[in-house]
Design a protein around this nucleic acid. Structure first.
Lengths: 127, 127
DNA sequence: ATTTGCTATTTATTTTTTAGAATAACGCAT
DNA sequence: ATGCGTTATTCTAAAAAATAAATAGCAAAT
């Protein structure tokens, strides 16, 4: 397998330093709202997949994640954001669909900007 | 309980930004050697406890960690370092003891220096 | 009305991770 | 030589996390 589908787990690094003597500094960032996990790598990837694929079910499948898990993540994200980052309808010929609101798009973009700064910082760290 | 004893788990942040609107940037760093986890917060705390308490068993107890888990962490750390960061003897009146080698002390100090830089960086990040 | 494929929700199962228990070996001190 | 509390090691149990399964509701299109 060329690229792992499930490369967004908890222990997985978001950034890493340039290797020196086989030793690398690895790191991970996430956002908390009122002390509760709000956005992390995996969650932001999920949001992007929802945007790209148009449904929570398809997004979950593409990440080899259980639908119920993806669904509860979306519920948490919307609740903690205090507004909908993901909107959806259900019913209809195609069963329903889900999409990112403008606030959702902003959150995704903002997270990746933060990650980019982190990657830049960590690149210059050494042990 | 004033201070949690087990505050060094995988999902626990090493650093966090100043809270803005209830939203905080949290982060975690670790070191990998040849792609395998080498030093992380929990492992470095374990090394410090070994230094302070003089045995792996006492260190594990103080962190409410199973001895067998602490023991295998020490084995991994020494293996990945390519030299002993923790030395030990066994047998004797007091059963045996463990201590940090100079290389072990250096590793602990170096890790906290890295963490300090990380905390300084993340403090100024915002989402 | 029926079909369709999703959302929504709960419950059960599996997997993974971590803790715990149990046993042997060790060697110094008594 | 015996007792002691550790290191060392393996195996089992428990806890946590993730997946899977199962069911109902929905509304557009046929």
């Amino acid at each position: 397998m060329a690229v792992k589908k499930k490369d967004h787990g908890r222990g997985t690094a978001l950034a890493s330093s340039l290797p020196a003597a086989g030793m690398q500094v690895k790191g991970r960032l996430w956002l908390e709202k009122d002390g509760e996990a709000f956005l992390s790598w995996g969650r932001v990837v999920l949001l992007e997949r929802i945007r790209d694929l148009g449904s929570i079910a398809a997004a979950a499948r593409s990440m080899e994640m259980a639908y119920s898990h993806a669904w509860s993540m979306v519920a948490d994200i919307n609740r903690l954001a205090g507004e909908e980052l993901v909107s959806r309808t259900f019913g209809g010929r195609k069963g329903g669909r889900a999409w990112l609101t403008p606030a959702g798009e902003k959150a995704v973009a903002g997270f990746w900007q933060l990650v980019a700064r982190f990657q830049e910082w960590i690149k210059h760290q050494q042990f």
